[in-house]
């Protein structure tokens, strides 16, 4: 519990900075409004107004928190379209949008992880793949995802694939890379002595893979998965932006920016950040359990 205090201290500092920035950024609008109305405004009025505008340049933390609360608990429990009254999640709640994003993220993460591991297996075992695949994998990550995402969505839509799959593919596109790099490193982690040992048993390549390379790579796998799952979430959100998707945190961000709803944008951002943190923590928990069972102390 010693770690709580520093975390809280940093959080407090961020909140204080955020409030300061809120006042500074929103003050102009307050002054303009006052000038238009022909009234003088003092510091206390500026302070009060900048923290409670409906379309601020930067919403205050409490406004974002209130919006989060409003668009999750209040919407689902008391809203007409909420799960309590209608039996289904409300399309105005962040829980619904978060779920849409999460499901595509998980699917893309599974694709990406599988692809990353498969390519790593190939690279470690085949000289030709080692020389040919890695440069392409690196090149793939230098292409801005924002440029590729709309094309993927459009091309797939033209052959009738819509909804979850295109977003998951974009998520996989981002998440396979850290897994690939980590697993190539992991599969190559056994030192020469350990490989020689298996050679003295005349072990096959398959035997060497299952008994030595794979177990050695597990710590690397989890390090990659933590990066990969966050990348998958980013990929999914980017995939939701261009096609005017009607659901998902990305869609929520987009509609917020169309209508100048900064509070809604920040609430969606915070929801995405929370989701990412939660996913990384889940991977971390699984890591501790798996490495513990393998007799390794994480």
């Amino acid at each position: 519990m010693k770690s709580v205090l520093p975390i809280l201290t940093v959080l407090m500092a961020l909140v204080v900075l955020w409030y300061g920035a809120t006042v500074l950024l929103n003050a102009q609008w307050t002054r303009d409004q006052a000038a238009r109305a022909g009234v003088e405004v003092g510091f206390s009025e500026i302070l009060r107004d900048t923290l409670s505008q409906t379309r601020p340049k930067l919403p205050a933390p409490h406004q974002v928190v209130a919006e989060l609360w409003q668009s999750t608990w209040m919407e689902e429990v008391y809203g007409r379209r909420g799960i309590v009254q209608s039996g289904t999640l409300s399309n105005r709640s962040l829980i619904y949008h978060g779920w849409v994003t999460l499901s595509a993220t998980m699917l893309g993460f599974a694709f990406g992880t599988g692809l990353g591991i498969l390519l790593a297996v190939g690279i470690v075992h085949s000289k030709a793949m080692d020389l040919s695949v890695m440069p392409w994998a690196i090149a793939s990550q230098t292409v801005p995802i924002l440029a590729i995402a709309p094309m993927v969505i459009v091309v797939l839509a033209s052959i009738g694939i819509k909804g979850l799959i295109p977003k998951a593919i974009i998520a996989a596109y981002l998440s396979f890379f850290p897994v690939l790099v980590g697993m190539v490193k992991g599969f190559r982690a056994p030192d020469a002595m350990q490989l020689d040992l298996l050679k003295t048993y005349n072990a096959s390549r398959v035997g060497t893979f299952w008994r030595l390379r794979l177990p050695s790579s597990v710590p690397y796998l989890f390090a990659s998965l933590k990066v990969g799952i966050a990348a998958a979430l980013v990929g999914t959100i980017v995939g939701e932006l261009p096609a005017g998707a009607s659901a998902g945190l990305g869609a929520r961000l987009l509609s917020g920016s169309y209508y100048g709803q900064t509070i809604q944008i920040w609430a969606a951002l915070l929801a995405a950040a929370t989701l990412a943190a939660g996913l990384v923590m889940i991977v971390g928990a699984v890591e501790r359990v798996v490495l513990g069972r393998m007799g390794m102390r994480a």
Binding site: M193, Q194, L197, M294, G295, M296
Partner: peptide, 10 residues
């Protein structure tokens, strides 16, 4: 070998 080289996961 000079080092025991036991697998830590076994």
């Amino acid at each position: 070998f000079q080092a025991a080289g036991l697998y830590p996961w076994r």
